[in-house]
Each structure stands twice: as structure tokens, then as C-alpha cells.
Computed example of a mutant assay.
Amino acid sequence: MSRLTRAGVVAVAAVTALLLTGCGDADGGAAQVPGVGEGGSSDTPEPEPEPDDDAANDGVDRPRIELPEGISAVYEGWESEDPTEQRVLSDARAAQNAVDLAIVEHEPQADYVGFYHAAEALVDTEEWIAGFVRNDLTITGTIRYVDPEVTPSGDDQALVAYCADESGAVASDVGTGEEQPDSASPYVAYRNTLQRDDRGVWVTVLVHTERGQCTR
């Protein structure tokens, strides 16, 4: 599997990368962000079912995001007994699924991407997905998202840190199925800033990643 920072996808002609790596602010800080609320093998573990939590029952009409056959996401430890923290985790999880689905469907400006992203994160995410479209690439396999940690910042903002294990997934050519070669680490540390908008959705507004920083 080949990997590259998101900034690199914009700069080079060929995308040889998998997911949202190397983007966002340098320190992952939770600064107030404008624009939120305006206007989303047998050895492979089975994906966890969507959690039955308050985020899915808060009256917000969220898009249903289902990854197609060939690509799956496994979330480990994304449950919390704290209702607010669970809402944050659920929307962060949905935002990640939205990105993965949009890459597979080649839909950078899909409504479900805009539903869960705003401000800088939305611009970066749409451009990142567009890189896959321009280079006729998709992703297959299983990606594991583990060890999430929520750090609140006031009532309407939170930092969500977690690790992605991409070792079970590959980037490949849509037409030929040829896998892209890679020697980079499959582990990525995420530090995403989420902000609760006027709908009550915890929207991802900043994404910061560091490849090789998780050893899961």
C-alpha cells in the first residue's frame, strides 16, 4: 500500500497514498473555527456495528453511511458511558467513514462529507478525495481505528485523538486493480478538532495526523 501526506497529493501528479495523513494545524489545537453551523480473509476482524447511543437518537437527521463490499472499518474502544463524549465519538466515527466512502465512490463533494466536515477540514478533505479521483485510485481492505481519547474544550469543542492501522488496506487502480507499492508505516496518529454546530452535530473542523506515531 502506498501512502503520502495530504499536502503531497495536491502537489504531485500521482496519488500513492491511502488516507487522511499529514493535514491540519501543526499542534492539533482546538481554536475556535469560523464557518461551523453555516449553510458533511477469515483472519480479518468483522466491523463493529454502529453503537446504539444518544447521537443517533438526538433528533438530527444524519445521513446513513455504509461502506460497500471490499472496504471495511473496524472501530475498537469507541464507546463511552458519558453521553456527551459518546456523541463526540459517534460523529467523529461517522466523519471518518464519510471520507472512506467518498474515496471509494469518487465523490469529493458528497453531501455526507459536508455533513460531518466544515471550515479547513472540509476544504482539505474534499481536495484529498479529489486526488484519488484524478488518479483513478480507490481503497480496499480493512482499516482499524483504535484507542480514541476525547479531550473537551468548553461546552462546544473537543479534541479527538486516535490511531489508524492501515496495514490491512491497499490503494489500487480502479480499472486494473493494480496495488500501489509502499514502504511507509501503516500507523497514523490522528488529532482532530470537533465543534458542535447549531444542529447539534459534532463537526470535524481541523484534522492533524502524524504517520508512524502509532504502534498498534
Rank of each mutant, 00 (worst) to 15 (best):
E149Y: 14
E81C: 02
T142C: 09
R134F: 08
E127W: 07
D61K: 11
S167C: 11
R144F: 09
V174I: 14
P148N: 00
I129E: 03
P49K: 02
V74D: 01
P181K: 11
I65W: 03
E127R: 06
G70I: 09
H106Q: 13
S167F: 07
G154Q: 03
P63R: 05
Q180V: 10
T138C: 05
E76H: 10
I103L: 04
D147K: 09
V160M: 03
A171Y: 02
V170E: 08
A130P: 04
P51H: 05
N57A: 15
A55C: 13
L137A: 08
A73C: 06
L101W: 01
G70H: 11
E178Y: 05
D54C: 13
I103N: 06
E105I: 06
P45N: 05
D147C: 09
P47W: 07
F115N: 03
S80R: 00
A161M: 14
T125R: 13
R134S: 13
L89P: 00
A118G: 12
Q180D: 06
D124C: 14
E79T: 04
A171C: 07
V146Y: 00
E126S: 15
P148L: 00
E107T: 14
T142F: 00
S172F: 06
D173G: 03
G77M: 01
P108A: 01
E79M: 02
P63H: 04
Q157Y: 02
